[in-house]
Design a binder for these strands. Structure first.
Lengths: 190, 190
DNA sequence: ACACGATGTCTACAGTCGTATACTACGACC
DNA sequence: GGTCGTAGTATACGACTGTAGACATCGTGT
């Protein structure tokens, strides 16, 4: 568990405050979904009042759009072709969805905000911009776009079952066995 | 599109009213998620007032639990072994997530209610009771439970990308091509 | 026919939501 | 050192939430 919140007394600094709000928003939206957090929660986590959100981002919805865009921008890009990409993707997927690791990430954000139509539209655009496009370029060959999105779908499904719902078999499965099975699936698409 | 609502003047009938509320709840929760619908919405759709929900189900949360249980009870069971099961599952999955068919179903319900922890706990129990158990029995052999839940994960992911988010490639993909690709994936698990 | 229990409704409450308006206080520049 | 723009706050509003309690009305058993 990370420290509850660093109550650093920020000196007056618009850019830093904006960034603090954005980071708090990413964490909160990922943890509880678009409808599950109020602007007051996010503001409190960032150490400001709720109205600053509207000053800097216009509305909760626009804040969500920026948060999604930041969360979906790939930080560690998995490259390589075929077996490499499948194996590495499976390994990090299993690691990041392990029972203990309450990891953040775009898949959680997507799953937890799937209820609101405004949120889904924002995420659809973000996927087309970031992971979908990147993965499609990585996977060459025919039907690359479909194969890329099927890989995303599989990963999202594992996140859902393992981290969000917490179904028994996937939660208790041995990491090595599970990694191998997922790798074999991804291999079909890679 | 089905008729907006049949404003049938139900004569006083506790069982029928209860059932009407339950069906309205399944439809509403599937469409907008646990947090996305209010008890007044459900009550209005069922042609009653909101308080009847508390009278018959105790609370919104208990109504959700019954709705989930009903939605997850498998209606059309897909059996057969290996290729049969994979092919038929892929076929119905693609058909039910087609752009036009605003179909209801447990996967949509699960995805759209994934934000609330109370809702996820209820759904976890329902999966262990209904589809997980059934599919695990259908898939014999070693690791049957893990393979069954990976099949569910893949299906949920396709629902997410295709029906909820509506990503471009999966939405526009040719049904036959997509069915074949998903069948090949399921085949690995079956 | 009458009464009583079951069925359904009305009103209200305490809380939370997003956000608009009005305000205060800090800090850099001349 | 004063001044002015900006960073940040305080208050409040209207809408909506789930649910509690009191009330009305239908239907059935006698």
């Amino acid at each position: 568990m990370m420290a509850p919140e660093a109550p650093v007394k920020r000196r007056r600094d618009a850019a830093a405050t904006r960034q603090a709000i954005l980071e708090a928003a990413i964490a909160a939206f990922t943890a509880h979904g678009y409808a599950g957090v109020g602007v007051r929660d996010i503001a409190a986590k960032a150490g400001v009042t709720a109205m600053l959100i509207n000053r800097y981002f216009g509305s909760k919805e626009q804040l969500f759009a920026e948060a999604v865009d930041a969360a979906f921008a790939p930080r560690t890009v998995i490259s390589g072709t075929g077996a490499e990409l499948a194996g590495e993707t499976a390994r990090t997927l299993v690691a990041r969805t392990a029972p203990g690791a309450d990891e953040l990430g775009p898949f959680l954000l997507m799953l937890r905000s799937a209820a609101d139509p405004r949120a889904t539209e924002i995420m659809r655009a973000a996927i087309a911009r970031h992971p979908g496009r990147h993965l499609t370029e990585e996977l060459a060959g025919e039907g690359a776009a479909v194969r890329a999105e099927l890989m995303l779908a599989l990963q999202a499904g594992v996140w859902l079952m393992r981290s969000v719902i917490g179904t028994d078999a996937l939660k208790d499965a041995g990491p090595d066995d599970l990694t191998r099975r997922i790798r074999d699936l991804l291999q079909v698409l890679a």
